[in-house]
C-alpha cells in the first residue's frame, strides 16, 4: 500500500513536537475528515530556522508532515511558499491516489504557518 519512504517517515517522523515561542503557527484540516496538521515555525532573517509538527491522521498524513518539515527547514520564506503538494508526493516517492489529499494538507499547513508569521511581523 505504502512505499518504503512513506513507511520510514511514518515510523520515524522528523521534527515532531511543538515550539513554545513559535514565530508562526498553522493548523489545517478537521477532525471530521480525520486529518489535522499543526505546524510551528521559528524564523530568523527570513529563514526557517526550526520547524515542528503534530499530526492527527493516517500514516500518509504523518509521513507528509514529516517530509514537508524536512524540505522547508533552512529554506527562505519564499522558497517554503513555493512548495507544492506535488513536491511532497515526489519526495515521498508517490502516494496512493486516495491519499494525495494528505500532501495537499502539508502544503496548506506550511502556508498557513507562514501567513501567521507574516501577520505577527506586522
Amino acid at each position: 500500500m505504502y512505499n518504503e519512504t512513506v513507511m520510514e517517515h511514518f515510523t520515524n517522523p522528523r521534527n515532531v513536537g511543538e515550539i513554545e515561542d513559535a514565530d508562526g503557527i498553522g493548523e489545517v484540516g478537521s477532525p471530521q475528515c480525520g486529518d489535522i496538521m499543526k505546524i510551528f515555525l521559528k524564523v530568523e532573517d527570513n529563514i526557517i530556522k526550526d520547524i515542528k509538527f503534530k499530526t492527527f491522521g493516517c500514516a500518509s498524513a504523518i509521513a507528509s508532515s514529516s517530509i514537508m518539515t524536512d524540505m522547508v527547514k533552512g529554506k527562505t520564506i519564499e522558497e517554503a511558499l513555493a512548495l507544492t503538494n506535488k513536491d511532497v508526493v515526489d519526495a515521498l516517492g508517490g502516494l496512493p491516489k486516495p491519499k494525495v489529499h494528505c500532501s495537499v494538507l502539508a502544503e496548506e499547513a506550511i502556508r498557513s504557518a507562514i501567513e501567521d508569521y507574516k501577520k505577527k511581523m506586522k
Binding site: 511514518f10 491522521g57 493516517c58
Partner: peptide
C-alpha cells in the same frame, strides 16, 4: 489517534486487525 495509523503500526509487529476509519 486515527485508525489506519494504528492498524499499520500493529501490522508492523505482526498483529492483523481492522478499523472503521475513513482511511
Amino acid at each position: 489517534i486515527e485508525g489506519e495509523a494504528l492498524l499499520l503500526s500493529l501490522d508492523m509487529v505482526g498483529i492483523a486487525a481492522s478499523s472503521g476509519s475513513a482511511c
